[in-house]
Write a protein that binds this DNA or RNA. Sequence first.
RNA 1: GGUCGCGUGGCCGAGUGGCUAGGCACAGCUCUGCAAAAGCUGCUACAGCGGUUCGAAUCCGCUCGCGACCUCCA
Length: 497
Amino acid sequence: MSFSPQGPLHITNTLTRSKQEFVPLAPPHVGLYVCGPTVYSDVHLGNVRSFLSFDILFRWLTALGYKVRYVRNITDVGHLTGDVDEGEDKIAKRARLEQLEPMEVVQKYTNGFHDVMRVFNILPPSIEPTATAHLIEQIAMVERILASGYAYTANGSVYFDVPKFAAEHPYGELSGRRVDELLANTRDTEGMEEKRSPLDFALWKRADHTHLMKWPSPWGEGFPGWHLECSAMSTKYLGLTFDIHGGGMDLKFPHHECEIAQSVAADGQVPVRYWMHGNMLTVNGRKMAKSEGNGFTPEELITGNHKLLERGYSPMTVRFFMLQCHYGSTLDFSNAALQAAEKGLERLMAALRGLEKLAPAAKPMPELDAQVQELEQRCVAAMNDDLNTPVLIAELFEGVRLINSARDGKAALSGPALERLRTFFAALVRDVLGLRDESVAMGDDKLLDGLVQEFIRQRAEARARRDFAAGDAIRDRLAEVGIILKDGKDGTTWERA
RNA sequence: GGUCGCGUGGCCGAGUGGCUAGGCACAGCUCUGCAAAAGCUGCUACAGCGGUUCGAAUCCGCUCGCGACCUCCA
């Protein structure tokens, strides 16, 4: 038996600000592009949330039977610090500070990023392209934009002409901006003397001899603008128009708006059919960001070594915590919420372990067959409704109650119902939500289990003699070393604290 | 200042016109030698004010509070 949920899937398309049925351009194939990290420093928890949201999308599309080509880039050049365009390249800056070759910085933080993704069980994409490996494509795209007349060169740099583009095409649709309003709200124009309009953005930036990262181009030595890589690489791997583009809410403007403009200017096609944006992780109501100093690294999170953390939390606790909130809502971090998630997750995973040991009842209750089926349907419906993981989790807890009741002999499941429940429950928890069991329990370690079983036997003997003091002493000593005994109807089980 | 969004029970957090989300916490009960676990039950909210409606957490208006974007950020 397998878990093979059916659509239709509905997702919130940020472009139309509405929930729409997802219909791929060329089923069963789905093209998915997600803006990846700029690898100039350690990722923080807020970054993790974003990649987790799209991990769930990727997993659910796959569960629905789609063949997903999932492209998530690594930005390794072109992302400037500070304001306007005189900022330094983030990676070059880091290289200078750490006295490393820029590519060493890139490698170091790319490795770190991958480690973090693995720790949180976020699946790798199908293709993970880097900007520096696609300079030819980016230069070619700039040439197409120049040829179509929506860009101009200035002193070795190339800029996108936003006012000209906006006069002939929709601009600002995704983010709800209007060019006149943007112009009215423009601040200082320092360092922008090369641009014709403050709204224009760099496609290619000239680099002088002091720059660490530069490449030859038709306009001289330089480097690509930040927005360009996503357009060039999504076009290369997913085509001129593809299904879904995702990223954090904070990328909507200007990054994604610029991507649309570039693609339309270069190739005359609207690049993306569904835009999806994950919301922010906040701390005390404020966005977690490196510049706010309220972010922490996954390592700090796990060890608890950060001023915001009362103690450490396991990666799966964090994953579960985040999935209890819809990706489109802001999620506020707090120790209390994390601790609540930790307990809830443990109850969920304990039920999953119990489910595997459950045997069909001798006298099944027929009404439970329908109940199991309805539960599965509600779970699938929750995911199809814009990846509503909090509702899915709520439904799964209904399953937890059923499983525990069956274990206690209060609910009698038929063979088929049990098999059905096992199949979809495990698939949803492990494959769709991507939750791994972190507890080390009976059976995982033969030596340990053998030893604990011996103690359990000794305690059972003591209890049989009604020597409860001796029995309790065994239980207390095991508890001291982190082993919890649980007396059930069918004997004693144990697990780690 | 402009644009957009949010304000749900002790805490976290779903829900967009009627029908109790769920988790955690708390209280009682059952089970148990005790404990833990588990099950059952209870606590039942929707920022404020006004309006629309037979009926609003859900729609509209105003007020208050908060946030995001507008400049790099997942």
